[in-house]
Design a protein around this nucleic acid. Structure first.
Lengths: 199, 199
DNA sequence: TAACAATTTGAACCTTGAGTCAATTTTTAA
DNA sequence: TTAAAAATTGACTCAAGGTTCAAATTGTTA
């Protein structure tokens, strides 16, 4: 890849980062392309050189989030941890990834329903992959009697809801760091799963 | 209150219900006043007889939600339950109230940031009242050694996140009823709070 | 240095939806 | 039964923002 191509890729990434931040702060509709462009010292026309539409931009933000989450899954899968430690790791990585500089958690939280069908289909498939992997961890824990019998889908939704909501309240000025919150959430959300005889 | 006033109040409530449902389904921006009116077999002009603006309508939806939640608090406060049972009750009532026919959970989840300052100030005050009451339950539980020491605000946010997220996935066609989910959530979210010697 | 490619500009177009209001219809009260 | 009040209509206005694109600028290559 030439320097020119690298710089183009960097400009594209900057557009995504800025879009994600403004989508998070203001919502999909209230974050305008004019504003995204101004933050980057461009005009709207320039943004359209890199994206085909505002929907495309939103989709690329979501896709980035899902790709990062799926990369986390790869790492955790290779770790050979027992199910409880593995699930805790997934929760921590989920929180830290989506609360990264991209602010992707609030993007995925607040605007995935804004995605038109042709885009949301792709995101839903990736989300299903992600949640199916988590379901596999829980089922493995249940079958090994480390976890108690629970309705797996409900538990996943409960965990996702708690984790994703962090984008709505977390502040760097708060008394706990993101890592501490991630650890606390992981412990808090896995504890009720443990079967009695593995306490 | 005359019959005419009762019917006017009922029409006003129907507008709020329909608005809440469409705000939940489509988001604040994509739910148009034209559409809300059509659902009620009116035109937009008629809606403006009952509301002053779309923001006013959104505010009234949020206000209804907060008032219902604060009513729940009154009931629970009077119940003299111990903190763990009281917190479980609050969680169950929270879930059942916001997932009522109004679909208010997804209104409050997906659009409270859309509220302009003059409206959101009122909602934030009510939400603070609500969350302060829950914080009081948790602190009482900690001081009585029923609950272990936890960062109270983080726990409240965790619980609210999990509970509010239900509006994003719950379907009446699922295998569990709303009440069963409420009970499961209450148990799951309070269990990790229990101190070791009160198990 | 000039031709070409990449990138950017900014004005214009178009659609959408919030909000308005005079006229009309419906309901109520005297 | 009529006048007044309440409620509704629907056409219109206007602003906002997504999208387009010809022209211009900047960067690269021969």
């Amino acid at each position: 890849m030439s320097y020119r191509e690298e710089r183009a890729a960097e400009r594209r990434l900057n557009i995504l980062k800025t879009a994600a931040r403004l989508f998070s702060e203001k919502g999909y509709h209230d974050a305008t392309l004019d504003e995204i462009a101004r933050e980057l010292k461009y005009t709207k026309g320039s943004i359209y050189y890199y994206i085909s539409s505002k929907q495309d931009l939103l989709f690329q933000c979501h896709d980035m989030a899902m790709n990062l989450l799926l990369e986390n899954i790869e790492k955790v899968r290779d770790s050979e941890l027992p199910p409880d430690a593995m699930l805790k790791e997934v929760i921590k990585e989920h929180i830290e990834t989506l609360m990264s500089e991209f602010n992707l958690v609030t993007v995925t939280l607040g605007s995935d329903y804004e995605l038109e069908d042709k885009y949301s289909d792709i995101i839903i498939k990736k989300r299903d992959l992600y949640e199916n992997f988590i379901a596999g961890i829980i089922r493995d824990g249940i079958s090994r009697r480390i976890f108690r019998e629970v309705p797996v889908k409900v538990v996943i939704n409960l965990i996702m809801g708690a984790a994703n909501w962090i984008g709505r309240w977390y502040s760097e000025e708060g008394p706990m760091s993101l890592q501490e919150i991630g650890q606390f959430y992981a412990d808090y959300l896995v504890t009720p799963l443990m079967s009695r005889n593995s306490a």
